[in-house]
Design a protein around this nucleic acid. Sequence first.
DNA 1: TCTAAACATTTAAAAGTTTGAATGTTTTTC
DNA 2: GAAAAACATTCAAACTTTTAAATGTTTAGA
Lengths: 89, 89
Amino acid sequence: MDNRAVEKATNAISDKYRLGILQALAQKGCMTNTDVQELTGLSQPCVSHHVKLLTDSGLVEARKEGRNLHLRLNKEALHELTTFLNGLL
Amino acid sequence: MDNRAVEKATNAISDKYRLGILQALAQKGCMTNTDVQELTGLSQPCVSHHVKLLTDSGLVEARKEGRNLHLRLNKEALHELTTFLNGLL
DNA sequence: TCTAAACATTTAAAAGTTTGAATGTTTTTC
DNA sequence: GAAAAACATTCAAACTTTTAAATGTTTAGA
């Protein structure tokens, strides 16, 4: 994982709503954008935007299932991030 | 470590210059603001600002030594962060 | 096929961040 | 004490992010 990827991943985490989404995914395993809308209370376009940041960062994987977008944690990416950060210790 | 602390810590990391500072601290052990100025090429007020973000996040500890500000990694805080993130796995 | 549901995109306003010039404070050195 | 070095603070400009309204696209179901 290079510096740019770390910057993007930590940036993705550094927001109240996005961290909440990651925690919900960690707990539930899978969610759709609509679930995220209910979770956060944000507007649909705003949820789309936050989810895009998360997927662009690599921390979340999205697959289209009919008209739903199924989201799940990318545990490998998260593990790479913690490995990088532990490397600073 | 609560969510707010994670948001602040990851936000602190999510910048090119601040990540560079963290890496330099990890490597060298200790630096002053002047060292950071040389490292980054940023102006002195801008360095002051970035260093403040890092210390406010808890990831960096600063102690005033005469007219110099000695910076070092707060390894415990960094460890708490990685522990939190691993908790999502 | 018509309707509705789920999500994406465009746009624009509001809020927040980054940057350096100017200036202030404290500490060291001469 | 005067000069300089190290850092902090204030300020304003430039830039980025966040947000939702409006609208577009695709898919599912009647």
